[in-house]
Structures are given as structure tokens and as C-alpha cells.
Simulated assay, not measured.
Amino acid sequence: MSMRVACIGTGTVGSAFAVVFARAGHEVALFDAAPGAVEDFALKRIRATLDLLGTEGALAEPVAEIMSRVRPAASLADAVSGAAYVQESVAEEVAVKRAVFAALGDAAPEDAVLASSTSALAGSRFLDAAARPGRCLVAHPVNPPSLIPLVELCPAPFTAKETVERARALLAAAGMSPVTLAREIDGFILNRLQYTLVAEALHLVGEGYCSAADIDRVVTEGLAPRWASIGPFEVAHLNAVDGFAGFVARLGGMMRAMGQGARTDYDWSDDLVASIHAELEKQVPVAGIPARQAWRDRRILATRRLQKGD
């Protein structure tokens, strides 16, 4: 069923969410407080993403028809007028998000679901700024949500059960793959796993065990081929003739020792960050990031076809 959706904040995440909703048949209004952000970035990004999806045969309608459902809004109030669902994707700052949700609470219809794309902040830190906070929750995507379907739904203690159910149904119908957290935790699931891995990677490079390129190869050529189809628990389950319990029985001691030795609290230096950046720039200069992103996006779509058995 078609409905009105508003995307507030139209950077890489907000514009990608607009693709998700417009592709699903919804009318999408875009608003960003930064002058020119919608016209100079978001609309172009949305069109480019739709062109890519069309080239890959992933659209059921012509690009022009999908684009016709996307409109710039003159104000936040204009964007949320008549909206059944609002996706906020503004700066990752509590004060900024509180101000936006206070405005959304006043301007959006009383029954609209108000969702935040926050990457790591617990929703209870800012969602209560909105009037009737029971309609608010976190809907944390993977960037870009236009290509990667996972979205983490995390209710605050005051979020109504109906709100979670409505958000889950709408996002699933739009082609997303929602995971619902039972309760709040900073970073949710994905970023707690991702940031922990990156922190230990910084430790390994910083202490001279390997290079940044070695880390990336270990992940892409070692972990990723299995992880593209099955998660770490099933990897362990299949790595033992007697399943997960047998895996842990034989390797649990080693797992605990490595966990204790990991340095996820590693105090990396600015020099280490600069050194890794310089190493990466040799492979992908900053000026070449857009082209490399386009390459990445094509690979993401190819991986998704593999995952679906296409």
C-alpha cells in the first residue's frame, strides 16, 4: 500500500533510504537543513543509484517513474505533512537529534512512526524530545540501505510495541530485512561487531604484527567468503563434525585466551591513523573514492544475487 514517507537529512544514508521507499511505491519527501543539499547531492545520488539498479535488472519500474515519487520539501513541516513514516538521518550528535525530534513531534501527524538512523546512540537519549515518544524508535541501516537490506530496529524503553510492529512491517514490505533488538545497547548489533573488529585491527597494525593491507586481505579472502553466506555461529557449527558444541569444547579455551588478549581498547595514535590512511590512499586516492564506491556497489549487488541463489 502506497503511503507518504519523509526523509529528514539527505546525506548518503538519507538519500539511500529515499531510494528504498520510492522503489517500494511510496511518495517520498526530502528535507535537509543544509542549503542545496537536496538539489545538489540527494536527488543526483538517488538518480545514480536507481540507474545502477536499473542496469542490474533490479527495478520493476522505469527510473523516471520512481523518481517522480520523490520531491524536495521546502521545510521540515512540509516534508512530514501527511507522512505515515519519517526516517531521520541527521548528524550523529545528541543535541542535534533532540532538536530534530522535538520538531518532528510537533509537525508530524500524531500517528506517524518516527525513526532514527543513528549509528550508535541509544534512542532513549534523544527520542523522548518528541511529543508522544511511544511512536519513536531507532531503525539503524547498513550504508547504503538502498543496496544492503539489513536494518536494526531498536525500541527505547518507552517505544510502543505497535510502533516496532508497524516499522517492521513497512520496512519488510519495502524489501528491507529487519532485525529487532530486545533492548537498548549502544552501537546495536552490527556496529558493536564491526567496531570491535576494527579496534583489534588497529591494535594488530599499531603493534607491528601486519599491515593494513594484510588485515583487509584476511577479511576479504579469509572471513568474507564464508560470511557472505553464513554467520560466525554457523561457520563454527560447520567447522566441527559434532557441531557448535563440539567446536567450543575443543577450541573454547583458545577462544577465551584470544578474547582476553585482544585489545579492543587499544589507544591508537594520530600517527597510526595517518599511516593507515596513507597506505589506503596509494590504492584508492581520496579523489577516486566515488569511482571506487560505484565499484563497491556493483560488487554488493553481485554478492546479493549470490546470497539469494540467483
Rank of each mutant, 00 (worst) to 15 (best):
S2L: 01
M3Q: 14
A6D: 09
G14W: 04
A18Y: 11
E27H: 11
D32W: 05
K44H: 12
I46A: 05
I46Q: 04
D51R: 11
D51S: 09
E56G: 03
A64D: 15
E65Q: 14
E65C: 02
M67H: 02
S68K: 10
S68L: 03
A73W: 04
V80F: 02
Y85T: 00
Q87I: 05
S89V: 01
E92C: 03
A102R: 13
G105N: 12
D111I: 04
D111G: 12
V113D: 00
T118M: 07
A120N: 07
A120D: 01
A129I: 10
A131L: 09
A131W: 01
R132H: 14
P133Q: 11
A139D: 00
P144C: 07
C154Q: 01
R166Q: 13
A173P: 09
G175R: 08
P178Y: 08
G187W: 04
L190H: 07
R192G: 12
V198F: 13
A199F: 10
A212D: 05
I215A: 04
D216S: 04
R217V: 09
V218Y: 01
V218A: 15
T220V: 09
A228E: 09
S229T: 08
I230G: 05
N239P: 00
A245E: 15
G246S: 11
F247Y: 15
G253K: 08
M258C: 13
Y266P: 07
D267M: 04
D271H: 03
L272Q: 12
I289G: 01
W295K: 08
I300P: 07
K308F: 01
K308G: 04
G309V: 05
G309K: 05
